[in-house]
């Protein structure tokens, strides 16, 4: 039985903040990738031909039902065999962005389906070209509805960033693990990281709930 050693906490702080920076970097870039790629999938779900709809459906469903960890290994080990070499951080960010894009695609799909049919008909009646229909009529109305759900997935993504330690990205949890390996003190850094996740995720979820009350009525 050992007690909690506060000096180990202060020793861990420099590495901890490095880890926080990497985590936030992965989170922001991963969110951007998932938001844009998800929109691409969502529009492809509504493509006029089934030769686009079906492959996109199967592909996103496959990504969504398989573990991020295995996908990470796939990108990290297989792509170099095909001659594409990225850093661990880039691979991790792209993988997490791709993984979550299949979730945001479902969110966008629901948001687009919730736009009243009359809006599509009005756009047709005004003979707007397709890109104007999407950009000026459908998407602005859909975005309002999807914002809170997207926020929830950003929080979920934050909680999945520790998986990146499997390919050696030095985010929060990996920093804690490394610190533990060097000093043989795992308790303090791991507790700090656990608390840090709650301290980031809980206010963020309150924010999303407030957003939900404001935007979805």
């Amino acid at each position: 039985m050992t007690s909690f050693d506060w000096s180990a906490v202060s020793d861990f702080m420099p590495e901890f903040w490095d880890g926080v920076l990497i985590t936030l970097q992965v989170l922001v870039l991963g969110s951007l990738i998932s938001f844009t790629l998800g929109l691409v999938w969502a529009i492809a779900f509504r493509a006029p031909t089934r030769f686009v709809r079906w492959p996109v459906n199967v592909f996103t469903e496959f990504i969504r039902t398989t573990p991020l960890l295995v996908q990470l290994f796939f990108f990290y080990f297989v792509l170099p065999e095909w001659g594409i070499q990225f850093s661990a951080l880039t691979t991790g960010t792209v993988a997490i962005g791709l993984h979550y894009s299949t979730y945001t695609a479902q969110v966008y799909r629901a948001g687009i389906e919730a736009v009243p049919k009359g809006q599509w008909e009005a756009a047709t009646a005004l003979s707007l070209p397709p890109h104007r229909t999407w950009m000026a009529v459908i998407l602005p109305q859909a975005f309002r509805r999807v914002m809170p759900a997207l926020g929830n997935y950003v929080i979920a993504m934050l909680k999945d960033t520790p998986i990146l330690l499997a390919i050696g990205v030095l985010e929060m949890l990996n920093q804690a693990r490394q610190f533990g390996g060097q000093s043989f003190q795992y308790t303090e850094p791991l507790t700090v990281v656990g608390v840090a996740f709650i301290l980031i995720a809980y206010p963020a979820s309150l924010l999303v709930r407030a957003l939900e009350r404001r935007l979805v009525r």
Binding site: M1, T2, L158, K159, D160, T161, P162, I163, L165, L173, A176, R177, G180, Y186, T187, L190, T191, V193, G194, F197, I198, A201, Y202, S205
Partner: peptide, 17 residues
């Protein structure tokens, strides 16, 4: 609020000592 992986590491490394 916390990640399943962090919790797993915590149970694995922190609980024993």
């Amino acid at each position: 609020g916390t990640s399943a992986l962090v919790l797993m590491f915590w149970l694995f490394f922190v609980v024993p000592p």
